[in-house]
Simulated scan of single mutants.
Amino acid sequence: MALTIIHLATIPVTNTSVNPARSISQALFSKSNALAQRWLFIVAPIAGAIAAGYVYKFFKK
């Protein structure tokens, strides 16, 4: 459900991608500064997974 909402809300506005592999491949072939921002495509999903793990442990107690 969350992924559907993200796609419906952000793709029409910013043409976003929530798939890091797709984001990095598009950054390689675009003629913009997207390649300089590729670290975000790698760090953000990892940080989100770590945060989700801590939230899960907190609520599981």
Rank of each mutant, 00 (worst) to 15 (best):
L40P: 10
R38S: 10
Y56C: 03
S17P: 02
L8D: 12
P20S: 03
P12R: 10
Q37L: 07
V18A: 02
G53Q: 14
A44E: 01
Y54N: 06
S32E: 12
F29K: 15
S25A: 09
N19G: 03
A52Q: 03
T10H: 02
F41M: 05
L8Q: 14
V18S: 04
I5A: 00
F58P: 10
A47S: 10
A27R: 02
A34I: 13
N33W: 07
P45N: 00
V13Q: 13
N15E: 15
R38L: 12
A47N: 06
K60P: 08
N33L: 06
M1P: 14
I5L: 00
A36Y: 04
P20T: 05
F59D: 08
A27L: 09
V43W: 12
A34M: 06
Y54F: 10
K61T: 15
I5E: 00
F29E: 11
A36D: 06
K61H: 13
K31F: 08
K60N: 15
V18L: 04
I5K: 02
A47K: 05
G53V: 11
V43A: 15
Y56G: 08
W39P: 04
A34F: 13
Y56F: 02
A9F: 03
K61P: 13
S25V: 08
A51D: 15
S30N: 05
V13A: 14
S32N: 14
I24H: 04
F58T: 08
T14M: 05
R22P: 10
K31L: 07
N15W: 10
K60C: 14
L35W: 07
P45R: 01
V55Q: 11
I24Y: 07
N33M: 11
I6T: 02
P45W: 00
F29V: 15
N19A: 08
K61L: 15
I42E: 01
R22Y: 13
M1S: 15
G53C: 11
L3H: 05
R22D: 07
T4H: 09
R38N: 03
I50Q: 09
Q26M: 07
F41R: 04
V43E: 14
A34H: 14
I42Y: 01
I46P: 01
Y54I: 06
Y54W: 08
I46T: 00
N15P: 09
Q26W: 06
L3S: 13
T4Q: 14
N15Q: 15
A36K: 10
P12G: 03
P45T: 01
V18I: 12
I11L: 05
Y54V: 03
A2P: 02
V55T: 08
K60T: 15
I11T: 06
A47C: 03
V18K: 01
